[in-house]
Design a protein around this nucleic acid. Structure first.
Length: 286
DNA sequence: CCTGAAACCTGTCTGC
DNA sequence: TGCAGACAGGTTTCAG
């Protein structure tokens, strides 16, 4: 499911209430339940269960695709990976009966005000970290694409330092934090740049278009509360505005030519061969 | 430094 | 209908 806009949508709901239940900000954790220990990256299950008690959710921020929950003493980092989701819901019904966890719930945090936070993750790829040093986990992430100080000149410098295909490079969280498969394909199409273009061959004009396109698709995704795909993520409706993602064989919204799908860096990649022409490369003569 | 393959998992969809 | 295979929003690790 979750790329930057989906994670941001969930983060805002945790902070202010909304899509997945009431706000959790200000609630104190009373106890925790681990239904799948593999969902916990650190510390050990015993230490986690003990240490998280009596800590309050002070604030929710985001770094790349990580939800950063600031607690009283520690930081709880949550990465949803492919199929993770978070719900805030009552812990007990009107009769005071505790409600059973849902299918695929992996971690449940029970709070005051009869609320609980459920971490649901069908594919078990998601992870939580309870740590006093979040930088140890987040430290290598690339810049935030929507940050004020992430400008086109900085982006150009970073692209020129690498010699890699754009698609896998943009998916590399240490290069830029937050893009996933959907928003990368959408941004490249909006910018009119081929996904296999090599990063240090981009002109400064192309770079500016790509920088602008990345920010536009992410902001548009956030405005739409993210994209709902298949059975995994319920919520936003950005999927209704997809230009290329999941549209192989259908007409390009700009020129009408069929959208092509091929594997690039082991990821399904959607693009318009007319609007995103391959660059003729002198050094790779046929 | 870069690329590709495999691994971690469960579920859905397509084609034979 | 059954069943095998491909594919899925992500990341890490390892071999070359």
């Amino acid at each position: 499911m979750p790329e930057l806009p989906e994670v941001e949508t969930i983060r805002i709901a945790l902070r202010q209430g909304g899509r997945n239940g009431p706000a959790l900000r200000g609630r104190t954790i009373l106890s925790a339940r681990l239904l799948w220990e593999g969902s916990l990256a650190e510390p050990s299950p015993a230490e986690f269960l003990d240490r998280i008690r009596r800590q309050r959710f002070e604030d929710f921020t985001r770094r790349g695709k990580f939800i950063v929950a600031q607690l009283t003493r520690d930081t709880l980092l949550i990465h949803l990976r492919m199929s993770g989701d978070l719900r805030v819901e009552p812990a007990c019904d009107e009769q005071g009966q505790s409600l059973a966890p849902a299918e695929h719930d992996r971690v449940v945090l029970y709070c005051d005000d009869n609320l609980r936070l459920a971490f649901n993750d069908t594919r078990k790829f998601g992870r939580m970290w309870l740590t006093s040093d979040p930088q140890r986990v987040l430290g290598r992430l690339g810049p935030e694409p929507l940050a004020e100080d992430f400008n086109a000149e900085e982006f150009y410098r970073r692209l020129q330092k690498k010699h890699r295909q754009l698609k896998p490079l943009l998916l590399d969280q240490n290069f830029l934090a937050g893009l996933g498969n959907i928003y990368t394909d959408e941004a490249l199409h909006l910018a009119g740049i081929h996904p296999c273009q090599i990063s240090d061959q981009l002109t400064s004009d192309q770079t500016r278009r790509l920088w602008q396109a990345i920010r536009e698709v992410l902001q548009s995704g956030i405005r739409h509360n993210g994209a709902s795909i298949d059975w995994v993520y319920r919520g936003g409706n950005f999927q209704n505005t997809f230009r290329v993602y999941g549209r192989a064989g259908k007409p390009c919204p700009v020129c009408g030519h069929p959208i092509e799908r091929r594997l690039v860096g082991q990821r399904g990649t959607h693009f318009c061969p007319v609007c995103q022409p391959a660059v003729y490369n002198v050094s790779s003569e046929v």
